[in-house]
């Protein structure tokens, strides 16, 4: 299977992987989010970018409406311990634990451990290659459809 697409599973027809890139909170640093969004698009995924200054509620509403497979969150303001788990909880409360939540930003290792324990599947730090993110998402989708 080519990177960026998913096989038939859970009643869904074959289609490209759909991913929502969200910027929760107030920080305006979108360089990383935009570079990652473009990298995922170039790998064949369908990417929806929310724009800046989103609340977790706005992001989850968009993710559910757009029926995405993955939500990727970017925070560089230090508010990650509040906002990442909130997105995860809101998805859960809508019965959408099937949506993979990943993230990136300026996040210390201690906090990465805490967030992964709360269900954020993976946090990508500074210096990450977009290929690593593409690979992680593709492998996860494959593991879901296997």
């Amino acid at each position: 299977m080519v990177a960026g697409s998913r096989g038939p599973a859970e009643g869904k027809a074959t289609r490209p992987i759909r991913i929502l890139i969200g910027k929760p909170g107030l920080d305006g640093h979108d360089r990383g989010a935009k570079v990652v969004a473009a990298g995922l698009r170039d790998a064949g995924m369908e990417v929806i970018y929310t724009g800046l200054h989103q609340t977790p509620e706005m992001i989850v509403t968009a993710a559910v409406q757009e029926d995405v497979d993955v939500v990727g969150l970017s925070i560089l303001s230090g508010a990650h311990l509040t906002l990442f788990p909130r997105v995860k909880q809101l998805l859960s409360s809508q019965g959408r634990d099937d949506i993979l939540v990943i993230g990136g930003g300026i996040i210390p290792q201690d906090d990465i451990d805490k967030l992964e324990a709360q269900g954020v599947a993976r946090l990508f730090g500074p210096g990450t290659s977009t290929d690593d993110i593409v690979d992680f998402v593709t492998m996860w989708i494959q593991s879901q459809t296997a």
């Binding site: 909170g25 107030l26 920080d27 200054h53 609340t55 560089l76 303001s77 230090g78 508010a79 311990l81 509040t82 906002l83």
Partner: peptide, 22 residues
């Protein structure tokens, strides 16, 4: 911090999790 940069008070709902952070 980001709330101040965006014109919010520390007790505004949008400020949650961001107060004094960066």
């Amino acid at each position: 911090d980001f709330p101040t940069l965006m014109g919010y008070d520390s007790d505004s709902p949008r400020s949650e999790g961001e107060v004094g952070k960066c």
